[in-house]
Nucleic acid binder design. Structure first.
Lengths: 131, 131
DNA sequence: AACATACTACGAAGAGCTTCGTTTGTCAAG
DNA sequence: CTTGACAAACGAAGCTCTTCGTAGTATGTT
């Protein structure tokens, strides 16, 4: 049931980077998030803080204020958000054609035979399980 | 070779809608684009015009000024842009895992067995062709 | 108690996105 | 030649995103 009133909105680029950190690390303080993000891209502490505050308002993250250093965690599991994003792009850019999306992904970067095999397994599962 | 200096940037949501119209219709005037877009979403003529002008500056569309009513066409083929977008999302949200992206797409909306079969054909092709 | 340290909160700037109203230019019909 | 229709161009407003500086507040150390 996508699009419920309290579903968080699609995360922006910077927000997605932060969510990725939270998914990888689990609940984290602003400092921890900032240090992780800064490893890939110079980022001020207050920038990370502000982002997290806004994300909390949007419902993208949850905040625990028990400690002096508030602890943030992702509001939705990684898979949930990935499904949102994939579904969103599927509709916006691929006219709902999953085939086109897969083609786009495969042609965008070389995929190993092992991964192709895993994708095949996925297809099997979806052919059996979901009628 | 993604990321060449003159590659157009990732289109925004509104821009993607317009590109879709251009891909579907081929080269079109502003009026034609506006009417097509307005069918799905109330849109003023000047809004479509401004968008197209900005998109021309960005290189997302090309403009032919031979006629009084300028004729716009997509700067890149649909497949090229789709590859960009899929690759971009693959990196930003899926850590480069094509398998995760496929899983996200499949779980986002029910996919017919026919389409699953077509996707399987795609995989075959990629297993043979690209070593 | 005073001080240094670490944290949150707030405000604002600068850029980009989207929309629209107004102006300017062009063409053709009366 | 004037008028009406239609097109491009321009400018600006309102919004979001991203960033950062500054101020205020709590904690712990000497």
């Amino acid at each position: 049931m996508p699009g419920k009133p309290n579903d968080p909105p699609r995360p922006t680029d910077a927000e997605l980077e932060i969510l990725t950190v939270l998914w990888d690390r689990g609940p984290s303080t602003v400092r921890e998030v900032q240090e992780a993000v800064a490893r890939r891209k110079p980022t001020q502490y207050t920038t990370a803080l502000k982002l997290l505050q806004i994300m909390a308002e949007k419902g993208l993250v949850r905040r625990n204020e028990k400690q002096r250093a508030h602890v943030y965690e992702a509001g939705r599991p990684r898979e949930w958000t990935q499904r949102q994003l994939a579904g969103d792009l599927l509709l916006r850019a691929f006219g709902g054609s999953a085939k086109s999306l897969v083609l786009g992904a495969l042609s965008a970067h070389r995929t190993s035979p092992e991964e192709l095999a895993e994708i095949r397994k996925l297809l099997d599962k979806y052919e059996k399980g979901e009628e």
